[in-house]
């Protein structure tokens, strides 16, 4: 593992983002560049994995090893990468549909394994890439092209979802507060274990006015300003339950005593069991005696 003196530029690739002008994801990728520069791991030691969706384009806009996979499956793939090479810094990103609809079943299992990776969801409450359908975090009543008469389902609450499955680090951010978001992403990456950041990243094309960056600036309320103690998990639940009503930013929960990571336990097991028959003699265990 190496840390070197790096700037945001070192993480910016030559690919020009194809997001709509004004998309919240522009801010998010800037925040990621800055957080990574501050952490100081060189790009080749970073694996950045995503699913499918507008936001899942993000690994390509960085100089890290990127893997833009299939819809909803970024987390399993990222866990395979992390297990294969625990030294890598592994970032996972995707949208709310990727993480809480098609890939929703993978989130609890990533949490219960506790791999040391960071999962950033760019939550815009809409399917943008397919042009404006209802998403799992869309508000009840929302009219979209697939809910022309108004949605009759209730949204998933991503914060409660990950909190209740036991994630050790749960935060929310908005690109409306670049400094705050960058600090949260950096803290999430530094957290030793599964960390989750729900970034309220507005869809400029299909989102509503109150969901845009400008509206966030006035609506957001930092948890720090409210004196929230991030080690208080029950209070975190209470605050997180206001998802969709009140834009809280900051760290809802940070486990003060992080348990051993998946990678650490795997390493421990490998060390404990090392020294079997050499690979070329593996069949000897089947010999009849």
């Amino acid at each position: 593992m190496t840390t070197v003196q790096l700037t945001s530029k070192d993480f910016k690739s030559n690919l020009k983002p194809i997001w709509c002008p004004g998309c919240g994801d522009f801010g998010v990728v800037q925040g990621i560049y800055r957080a990574l520069a501050s952490i100081g791991r060189p790009p080749h030691e970073i694996a950045f994995v995503s699913g499918i969706g507008c936001s899942s384009r993000i690994p390509g806009y960085t100089t890290a090893y990127g893997f833009n996979t299939v819809h909803g499956r970024a987390l399993p793939i990222a866990q395979g990468i992390k297990l294969a090479n625990p030294e890598l810094l592994v970032l996972v990103a995707g949208g709310d549909g990727d993480g809480f609809s098609i890939g929703g079943g993978h989130v609890p299992h990533a949490i219960r394994r506790n791999p040391d990776l960071t999962y950033l969801v760019m939550d815009n409450q809409i399917y943008g890439l397919t042009k404006g359908q209802l998403s799992p975090t869309s508000a009840c009543g929302l009219k979209t092209v697939t809910s022309p008469h108004g949605a009759i389902e209730h949204p998933v609450n991503p914060l409660l979802y990950v909190l209740s499955y036991g994630a050790g680090f749960v935060a929310q951010a908005t690109p409306a507060d670049m400094a705050g978001m960058t600090a949260i992403i950096e803290e999430a990456i530094r957290y030793p274990g599964f960390s989750f950041v729900n970034v309220q990243s507005p869809c400029v094309t299909y989102g509503e006015d109150h969901q845009q960056v400008k509206a966030h600036r006035t609506a957001m309320k930092t948890l720090a300003s409210m004196g929230h103690d991030p080690s208080d998990r029950m209070r975190a639940f209470e605050l997180a339950s206001h998802y969709g009503e009140q834009l809280y930013t900051g760290v809802f929960y940070r486990n003060p005593n992080p348990p051993p990571t998946y990678g650490a336990l795997v390493k421990e097991r490998q060390a404990a069991l090392a020294g079997g028959l050499p690979r070329e003699r593996i069949l000897e265990s089947f010999i009849q005696r």
């Binding site: 866990q79 395979g80 990468i81 079943g105």
Partner: peptide, 16 residues
Amino acid sequence: EDEIAGIGAAVGASFA
């Protein structure tokens, strides 16, 4: 957790 994640993790490890 499922068949998809099983092969997904294997694809990830191969990428690594």
